[in-house]
Computed example of a mutant assay.
Amino acid sequence: MNTDEPLRDEVVLIDKPLGLTSHDVVARVRRASGERRVGHAGTLDPLASGLLIVLIGRGATRRQVEFMGQPKIYQAELTFGSISETEDAEGPILPQATLEELQALTEADILKVLENFIGTIEQRPPAHSAIKVDGQPLYKKARKGLLIAEDIPTRTVTIDSITLDQFVPTTPPFPPTARITVHCQKGTYIRSLARDIGAALGVGGYLSELRRTAIGDFKVTDASTLEEFEKK
């Protein structure tokens, strides 16, 4: 974006691509806009894509808490039969179920388990997250091998609905997968949800794909790519 005057108080919708951190997106928007005060309203991991609200200017960044408190919609793919140390595809991935157990998994099993995660629930955040315990981000303790699940306090979160969009049974060597759409409130970790669904099914599971499609009334279909924003 070429302009002699820095932008002020603008809310920009960016469709974050895979591979970039939310900080990477903010840095590129800062360079393109010429505005020093740039932030975002809700982190997306590098392995996730979709809607990122970027706030440009003092007035917009002051509304960060307002935007972060909005409900969100995610589309996720869950892979069953293994668990992940990071609870997503970054791994390491550890097998948890036999072929017979995976072949026995049905769509009805998944639908029944999903019902248990709708409403207000207690959720344990991922070990590899930025949540602080005793003043230190969890991911730093996890990388040093100083963290066990019991050290991570649970949090109360609300999941408004979960829709099973697709179930693909196992066809060796490929594990079974499920695609779901999740409507949830702030603070919900989809990585943790994937982990807990896999555990409830008795076969293990992790988040293999994630895309955020909405935050409140903002939709990813109205978002620009970074390249489109930079060319404006």
Rank of each mutant, 00 (worst) to 15 (best):
E5T: 15
L7R: 15
G19L: 11
L20F: 15
L20R: 10
D24Y: 12
V26F: 08
A27N: 12
R28E: 10
S33W: 09
R36I: 13
R36E: 15
H40G: 03
H40W: 00
T43P: 01
L47I: 09
I53Y: 01
I53S: 00
T61A: 11
T61V: 15
Q64I: 14
E66G: 06
F67H: 09
M68W: 02
Y74M: 00
A76Y: 01
A76S: 09
S82N: 08
I83Y: 04
E85L: 13
T86K: 03
T86S: 12
D88K: 00
E90T: 06
E90F: 03
G91A: 12
P92N: 11
I93Y: 09
I93S: 07
Q96M: 15
Q96H: 13
A97M: 08
E101K: 13
E101R: 10
L102T: 08
Q103I: 03
A104N: 10
L105D: 07
T106A: 13
A108F: 09
A108Y: 08
D109W: 06
K112W: 10
L114W: 06
I118T: 14
G119M: 13
T120S: 14
I121V: 15
Q123I: 12
P125Q: 08
A127E: 05
A127F: 05
S129P: 07
I131Y: 08
K141Q: 07
R143P: 11
R143S: 11
L146R: 09
I148D: 10
A149Q: 14
D151L: 04
I152C: 07
I152V: 14
T154V: 14
D160A: 15
L164H: 02
V168M: 10
T171F: 11
P172Q: 07
T177S: 12
A178N: 07
T181K: 01
V182K: 01
C184T: 06
C184G: 01
G187M: 07
Y189F: 11
I190F: 02
R191P: 00
L193V: 08
G202N: 07
G205R: 08
G205P: 07
R211W: 00
R211I: 02
R211N: 02
A214M: 05
F218A: 02
T221V: 12
D222W: 03
D222S: 10
A223F: 03
A223E: 00
A223N: 03
T225G: 06
L226Y: 04
E228T: 12
F229Y: 11
